[in-house]
Amino acid sequence: MHWNWEDPRWPQFSYDSKSLDKPEADFLLRSGEFIGAFKHVSQDEQTNLRIELISEEALKTSEIEGEILNRDSVQSSLRYQFGIAKDQSGVPAAERGIAQMMVDLYRKFAEPLTHETMFGWHKMLMADSRSIQVIGGYRQHPDPMQVVSGPIAHRKVHFEAPPSERMAKEMEVFVTWFNETAPASARALPALTRAGLAHLYFVSIHPFEDGNGRIARALAEKSLAQNLNQPTLIALAYTIERKRKAYYDALEHNNKSVEITDWLVYFAETVLEAQDNTNKRVEFYVAKTRFYERLRDQLNDRQQKAVARMFKEGIDGFKGGLSAENYISITRASRATATRDLQDLVAKGALTRTGELRHTRYHLKLD
């Protein structure tokens, strides 16, 4: 026996539930903190914040798989999906597809999981694919489904999934398990436990030719949302992408046994970190709104462009701080104009300044 699905006990996973007692309690506490913070945002701004959070997740869940998407295109499609924009013309298929999946997840989190739900997500994700044999259905190819790395001559197999002929049966059992462990069901599981199990269980089956990681993370978020009875808007993919190696190491470490305490502890800690990141992003967004209210009509076009570019970096900020050279590159201003603009931004309380001479850097001054 080499892989977890080859164990006679599959898919009966085992774990130490006591190891998850504190993370489960912390998750519920932090969820309440997020709900409270979100309520402090106006109705109009809630829509914009929702788009910011969902677009970041869409970008990061794709980036984990090595697919770099255009932020503006994703947000444009999200605005269309939420009925804010009239069309999404010009949005590439990849950006449109991930936006559609994220909105479907957001709107229909409470619905029971079905094969059709996942088939629909797969069609959205693979909208621009030319190499997939089966789109919107489970894989059928006879070749082994392997996760590999390295050159062909020295290829390392990190995981091999069950053969395609088993997909219908495996996924029928998975869907039944997912729905029977939902809140208020006979086999209901705590939030973090169920979400972590759903993620690992699904990727162990690896039912699609491509897109399994993105759909696994969507299922984890669906699970969390069902346990909270509302969309989470949690920064799960954002958090995973920042420590991508640890994520893949945890998956590889736990794909050979049905005893998965290590995985569930790792996943629970990741979700808690994701909650912290989400709350920080809400606070950042509120601070951004206050920033613009405080400085309304006080910035020239160049300053507005530079400030918008700094805000685009999010809670991590402009790497190393904004330099005069950065400002010139963003605004195409002369050095003398850039110096005046930056001094003016500091005087107005928009930026703070650190360092001297060529080491001078500027940072957003937020409440």
Rank of each mutant, 00 (worst) to 15 (best):
L364P: 00
L345S: 00
A110K: 14
P144W: 07
A25T: 13
I68V: 09
R244G: 03
D341V: 02
G32C: 00
A250G: 00
Q230Y: 06
H40Y: 13
R361M: 00
I328V: 09
L125E: 05
T289A: 14
L29S: 11
F178G: 06
R302E: 09
Q146P: 03
E241D: 10
Q88E: 14
R290L: 14
L113R: 06
L29H: 11
G321D: 07
V148T: 15
A198Y: 03
Y285S: 05
I328F: 05
E259L: 08
E273G: 10
R290I: 10
Y248D: 06
G355Y: 07
P207V: 03
L264A: 04
E56W: 10
S329G: 12
I330H: 10
T331F: 07
N70I: 13
Q303N: 06
F159N: 10
H141F: 06
Q88Y: 14
Q100D: 13
E116S: 12
N70H: 12
Y238N: 12
D297S: 12
R358N: 08
S42G: 06
G137P: 04
P207K: 03
E209Q: 07
R281I: 08
M310P: 01
V271S: 05
W3Y: 05
Y362L: 05
A237I: 03
S129G: 04
N255F: 09
Q88W: 13
G320T: 04
I132L: 11
R187K: 14
A218G: 07
A85W: 08
F38W: 15
T352P: 08
L264Q: 04
V265D: 04
P190D: 09
T270K: 11
F208S: 01
E325K: 14
G349E: 02
D297L: 10
E252H: 12
P142T: 12
E209L: 04
V74K: 07
T354D: 13
M101E: 10
D249I: 02
P190S: 05
V286T: 10
F284W: 09
Q226W: 10
L29D: 08
K245Q: 13
D128S: 14
P112F: 00
T176G: 10
S42V: 02
A127F: 04
I205L: 10
D104G: 02
W3C: 02
F267S: 08
S323E: 01
R361V: 05
L342P: 07
Q298K: 15
D128K: 12
H206W: 05
P151T: 03
H206I: 00
D104L: 02
A195Y: 03
F82K: 05
A336R: 14
V157Y: 11
E56I: 11
L29N: 09
L299R: 07
F311G: 02
R214L: 04
P11T: 01
E6N: 09
L224T: 03
A186W: 03
E56M: 13
K243Y: 11
E172K: 12
D344Y: 11
V265Y: 06
